[in-house]
């Protein structure tokens, strides 16, 4: 999963391996979901060995990216029990993207420190910038 994370996450992401271990693999809501993730990653490894002669994680990042695209994972719909590319999209790519962009780690890169899916408090919506102070109220008293 870490090897896929390095491709799926933008180059500005830091600490990918730790993030993946903690929030993707570690966060999987139940054992069956984690098992499906491991199965999909194993299948990806098998394809990499067949096509490229090496385990997925041992390929250079560019080749990992190309392999996933050649498998059609970029255009595939995420389907938990679908075709190989649909399963890879669901259990590998989207599992990684969900953990990342629904957290401040990925959110911040896209401009939002409290993305949906993350309980980042009921103050951030009042700030003008990611790290700025809350906006001063305008228009009417609200303490009635």
């Amino acid at each position: 999963m870490v090897a896929a994370g390095e491709v799926v996450y933008p180059s500005a992401a830091e600490g990918v391996s730790e993030f993946v271990e903690t929030y993707v693999v570690g966060r999987a809501r139940d054992d069956s979901r984690r098992a499906a993730m491991v199965d999909a990653a194993t299948e990806l490894d098998d394809v990499a060995r067949d096509w490229e002669g090496a385990a997925f994680a041992d390929l250079p990042a560019d080749d990992r990216d190309r392999l996933l695209r050649e498998l059609g994972v970029d255009a595939a719909d995420p389907v938990p029990d679908g075709t190989l590319s649909e399963r890879l999209r669901f259990h590998v790519v989207n599992e990684l993207l969900y953990a990342f962009y629904a957290s401040p780690t990925g959110g911040r890169l896209a401009g939002i420190e409290n993305p949906i899916g993350h309980p980042g408090g009921a103050e951030s919506y009042r700030r003008a910038t990611m790290d700025g102070p809350e906006t001063t109220d305008s228009g009417g008293e609200r303490d009635g």
Binding site: Y9, A110, G111, Y125
Partner: peptide, 30 residues
């Protein structure tokens, strides 16, 4: 307070990833 797309939902539907995806999210959100 919820105008336009949310980056995480866009990301999960996108047909790319990596820096390419982040460029798209930068453009679509904010």
């Amino acid at each position: 307070n919820y105008a336009g797309p949310s980056p995480v939902i866009d990301a999960l539907h996108a047909d790319t990833w990596g820096d390419d995806l982040l460029d798209q999210l930068d453009e679509s959100y904010g």
